[in-house]
Amino acid sequence: MIQDGQDAEDASRFNAPAYADDHSFDILVDGTTMFVAKAATQSGTALDVDFDWESSDEAVATVMADGAMATITGIRKGESTITVSIAERGVGVEFAVNVHNAVKGILITGTDGAHVVGTSLDDYMAIAYDEANKADGTNDGDEVPNQTFVWSSSSAAATVTGDDDDSSMATVKIAGAGSADITASIGKVTSNKISVSGFSVEEPERRLVVDTTLLPVGGVYDHDPDDNPATSDSTLVAGDGTLQIRVQLQQRAVNADGEMVWNAAANDIAVTFKSLKTGILTLTDAQSSVDTASGDFFAQTGVNGIASITLTVDNVEAVGAANVEIDSEYANPKYVTVTFTAPPAMQ
């Protein structure tokens, strides 16, 4: 039995003496499928015979026959047994035709979320139903099997490819940075969406955000309050006493809604603080380490991506302004100006 022009090697075969076959066929209400029957001896020699076609329940499916060819039409939901017989030889075969209501809903499942570019997700599956999807993402209808699905991606960030042998299965590949919605459709019926996104491990997108509650940074500095070079005593005489620069390192990520947002970066990422005028300002912090070759200080991000440095004043020349450069890998540098002013002249 050759269905809808399929290759002969894929046809359903009914062999003597039982002429049994476990195949059944699915069509939709108002849908059709066409069969061509061929008879042969066990050795494979073709036989020129007349075929008779019959449906056990024409209220479910009808048969319009023309010799070896027959068109079966689905009338209403149910099952009918189709009999193909060769009267002059006293043999016949039967197979079931299952008639389903039209597809009105499709649900797909598969892995969502953010993935490294190049990742393949091979667990996508689609199921068709004869009722529309519910608002909560479920479907109470009956499954409509053996449907041909067309898979789609909303952007170039991901590609989706249906399985050659079973279009209800698909593989999604993360092709680039960004987000995409994966869907499956049959005609005008489209499934729920599954959102995926891609990012590059080699080049995450990061930024530094300066804590503005600590700005401006600076104070009144008396380089020699005793006016005695022999007993020079560098002292902050006004301001907070402890000057601190604090930043948050953030990294772009995908939230639960599939949107790209800025989140706090992970712990233990190096942030560099560097005074661009060491004659006025040097840096120190008990939690930081110093690169003795460059004078740079490295702080590590902690809770909520926070990194900070405590400032001290160089004894050589404390009055003036110095910029502090703050940098971290994959982020653009930020600059904070630290200004020190001399106290009013003593009368």
Rank of each mutant, 00 (worst) to 15 (best):
A318P: 11
P145I: 01
N192M: 01
M125I: 14
D296R: 00
R76E: 14
L283M: 04
A65L: 10
S191L: 01
A18Y: 06
M69W: 08
S328G: 09
V201H: 05
G78H: 04
F149A: 12
A158V: 08
G31F: 14
A135M: 12
S288K: 00
I182E: 07
D26E: 14
D240H: 10
D291A: 02
M169A: 10
N332M: 14
P343D: 08
M169D: 13
E79T: 11
N315W: 11
T190I: 06
E54C: 02
D257H: 09
K38V: 10
L311E: 05
L311G: 05
A128G: 15
S12D: 11
S289I: 00
T337C: 05
R13A: 06
V247R: 03
G31I: 03
S294Y: 00
G78D: 13
G67F: 00
D291G: 04
D50M: 04
S55H: 02
P225C: 14
D164P: 06
Y129F: 13
D22A: 12
V117S: 06
G44N: 13
I306Q: 13
T301C: 02
S168K: 09
D222K: 11
T231C: 14
D268Y: 14
T282G: 10
D22L: 12
D50Q: 07
T213H: 03
V319N: 06
A321T: 07
S12A: 15
A18V: 04
M1C: 10
V172F: 02
Q347C: 03
